[in-house]
Design a binder for these strands. Structure first.
Lengths: 199, 199
DNA sequence: GAAGCTATTGGACGAACGCCCAAGGAGTCA
DNA sequence: TGACTCCTTGGGCGTTCGTCCAATAGCTTC
């Protein structure tokens, strides 16, 4: 049942990263310990420092990896099958997919906070955020949005802020805030969206 | 120099709360320990559990107290002397007053996160947030804003989200995002603002 | 001055922490 | 079969954690 030698280690490494991403959301970044992490991953405590050179390094990699995964599934670069839905609707749909106090949502907030105390993490997160913002800005620009970059930045910040507030105010559903956020989208401004998609 | 007996304790209590509010922002909620807290406050470690029944209770009280203070000074119920400035400008001015990675800003985010793991804190924070939201909604309604409550909720969430993102993207100044956020404010909708302020 | 009270000190307690390492299991190749 | 490599185990190291407490200081009231 055991995999090949060079693969066995990779599997444990992966399990540790997955467990870390969950525990960051459950306990908070600074409250994830090597022992609970190993126990959650179902491995011996010593393995943590065999596969990773330190706990902060593990948490960094776990957060970045998990966040890339969530973003890839929540906001695919090209909209899924069935044609392109409204940009804002697609953007807001994640609000109903995550409650604001689940490990997935909290991982993002915890990572933002940890980045203020870890320069390396901050650089990686800044790149990730810029990537998301640029992708959103491009789709907004296609639709003729005025100031697409700033609008995208504000939309991204508003989304994370809504996650933050949603744990305290469950009324902040996509249906409730959608009409208000739609005011950010200008339709009178620039050029219309091109008829045929570039690619 | 020492104050009266019933006052001496109160002074130490206050110093502990102030130190805790700073340390929450600096180190993170779960990384504030009794010893560094006592050292920062300039008192013996044993005093922490003399004045507070547990560390979580101390952090809870420190966060709520400090947040009330920040909100009172950042957003007074009635605008300061010199007449009422634009609602959004006053609202956004705090963006330039806090950088996003200072203890003051981080305290808010840390408290939101801690609230997802502490029901008592969650209840208190929900009340605080509702208070801020209602005050903002009232001022928006005065100005004839459509959907003032939801608009206020979205504005408050966007502001906190901008703090969160600002540590990763320093371009998010009030001047940059102000024009975009202003789109949330509808001027065509409801009644005009009354000519004379009610009080 | 004695009694009584609150505030404060500094250290003890067991538990958990991050990190490290000697020892051994398990697979591959000569 | 023996050498070699990678992976895994379980516990030890010194430190720090939250909490508690006996002893003491400073003040108020008799």
């Amino acid at each position: 049942m055991a995999a090949q030698a060079p693969e066995r280690g990779g599997e444990v490494r992966r399990r540790l990263l997955e467990a870390a991403a969950l525990l960051i959301g459950e306990r908070g970044w600074t409250a994830v310990s090597t022992r609970v992490l190993a126990e959650r991953a179902g491995v011996a405590p010593g393995l943590v420092h065999y596969h990773f050179h330190s706990l902060p390094a593990l948490l960094r990699e776990a957060a970045i990896t998990a966040m890339r995964g969530v973003l890839a599934e929540a906001a695919p670069p090209r909209p899924g099958p069935g044609g392109a839905p409204d940009v804002l609707d697609a953007f807001l749909s994640v609000l109903d997919r995550y409650s604001g106090d689940d490990p997935g949502s909290l991982l993002f907030i915890e990572a933002y906070l940890a980045a203020t105390r870890d320069g390396e993490l901050r650089a990686e997160l800044a790149g990730l955020l810029a990537q998301v913002r640029d992708a959103l800005a491009a789709r907004l620009a296609e639709a003729g949005q005025a100031e697409p970059e700033t609008t995208a930045s504000v939309l991204a910040a508003a989304l994370d802020g809504l996650f933050l507030h949603r744990a305290l105010n469950p009324e902040l559903t996509a249906a409730a805030v959608g009409p208000v956020l739609r005011r950010l989208i200008t339709t009178d401004g620039g050029a219309e969206a091109p008829e045929g998609e570039p690619a």
